[in-house]
Write a protein that binds this DNA or RNA. Structure first.
Length: 381
RNA sequence: GGGAGGAUUCCCGAGCGGCCAAAGGGAACAGACUGUAAAUCUGUCGUUGUUAACUUCGAUGGUUCGAAUCCAUCUCCUCCCA
């Protein structure tokens, strides 16, 4: 049993290291249950994974989901969630919850001059009102929301980005982390994760990884990747960063991703991932398959009476055809959006299950090769 | 029987002498989507040899340098009065 089990409300239990790849098979314990890692976390920005019920999500095997500080702060207000008894009760989700700090959203709403040492000035996307988010405020809101894992308030450095900007940004993010730690007082129930930035610069990544992980926190995340840079560059950054992260704590790669990134991330020692891809592209009529993405909405599926995937055991593939789903999408029926989201979520959760199985059998590299070659995945996944 | 209005590219619909292959919707087709301002956004949407040419705005004929736009006749539709 890890010594972190007594120190933090969320802790990592290591089970096995893949002899072939070095990937980790583990278990993360939280006040709201345990989930196996590497894990994919569905995103439920506004206290709901768009279109899906909590039962459906957990039924697919998800043990943890994301929600968002910024969105719930703006609407309905973090006090309402707090008074409801926290996010878990509010949305009737039995598993673990992780809230993002709001930094990712706020930076997209702010102008460069509105980003100051104290925090970020920005305008609400809902009513245009002027708002100000600081590390302290983010911690207060996340305390109200009551997630098991809360994230430090950081700047997700964009790509491409000048070295100097990435450096200044990361230094500020590091100072903000100290303020988050200072403010965070619900340490018995909520685990604060620090976030490593550094753009696509190896030395900055290494430097920041050391700085951030010097704080005794229950977990760490890698942010600012998968923001448009080439995949190879992201892998390179992971190779620079992950080895510097503590072995006995969960490692979370934020905002990732697509099937190929999930597998490559796991190979490089990542335990947790999240991404809006399955639900977003699902709502927009695209599904993930073993042979790449399929735009179900396209005319070629009009008379295709086969499931999205022949060998898929998800609810959607067992019961509905491409032709039917395409019809629903073309007719703007909400069930079509649900079915696509459903299949995509199942696809990624199942993928992670297979990744974990491959780690247990010391064959994750083989699995990766099979996935890419045998199943026809090329570059675009 | 008399009077009025109208027929526009797949559909609806703007245009009322040149800047019109013809606004804007819709449909259709294709693409994008990576810590969700996303059931969103982008592109194509008469034909071809596509920085251009050709055919098109109910039909035919006419006026004009030039017509979807003006005139005449015809066909069909809608409405009002008998």
């Amino acid at each position: 049993m890890s010594q972190n089990s007594e120190k933090f409300p969320v802790w990592y239990e290591h089970i096995h290291t893949c002899a072939q790849s070095g990937a980790r098979l583990g278990r993360v314990h939280t006040p709201h249950g345990t989930f196996m890692t590497p894990a994919f976390m569905p995103v439920g920005t506004q206290a709901t994974v768009k279109g899906m019920s909590p039962e459906e999500i957990s039924g697919m095997g998800a043990g943890i989901m994301l929600s968002n500080t910024y969105h719930l702060w703006m609407r309905p207000g973090s006090d309402i969630v707090r008074d409801a008894g926290g996010l878990h009760k509010f949305m009737n989700w039995k598993g673990a919850v992780l809230t993002d700090s709001g930094g990712f959203q706020v930076f997209s709403l702010a102008k460069p001059k509105d980003i100051v040492e104290e925090g970020v000035h920005f305008k609400s996307h809902i009513d245009g009102s002027k708002q100000f988010l600081t590390p302290e405020k983010s911690m207060e809101i996340q305390k109200d929301l009551g997630a098991d894992i809360i994230m430090a308030f950081d700047e997700c450095t964009p790509w491409p980005c000048e070295y100097d900007y990435a450096k200044r940004s990361l230094e500020r993010t590091t100072r903000w982390l100290a303020r988050c730690i200072e403010t965070h007082d619900n340490t018995e129930n909520q685990a604060l994760f620090g976030i490593i930035q550094g753009g696509t610069f190896p030395d900055l990544r290494r430097q920041n990884a050391k700085e951030i992980t010097s704080y005794d926190l229950p977990g760490f995340a890698i942010g600012g990747l998968s923001v448009g840079e080439p995949g190879e560059l992201m892998y390179e950054m992971l190779d620079e960063t992950v080895p510097l992260m503590p072995w006995d704590k969960p490692r979370y790669l934020m905002g990732v991703g697509t099937p190929d990134y999930l597998i490559e991330g796991a190979i490089r020692g990542i335990d947790m991932f999240d991404c809006v891809i399955p639900t977003r592209i699902g709502r927009n009529g695209t599904v993930l398959t073993r042979k790449g993405r399929l735009i179900v909405r396209d005319a070629k599926n009009a008379r295709d009476y086969t499931p999205i995937e022949d060998n898929c055991d998800c609810y959607v593939c067992k019961n509905y055809t491409r032709a039917y789903i395409r019809h629903l999408l073309k007719a703007d029926e909400m069930f079509g959006l649900r079915l696509c989201s459903w299949h995509n979520l199942h696809f990624l959760l199942k993928l992670m299950e297979e990744v974990r199985e491959a780690i247990a059998k010391d064959r994750l590299l083989d699995y990766r090769n099979e996935f890419f070659e045998d199943f026809g995945y090329k570059k675009k996944v």
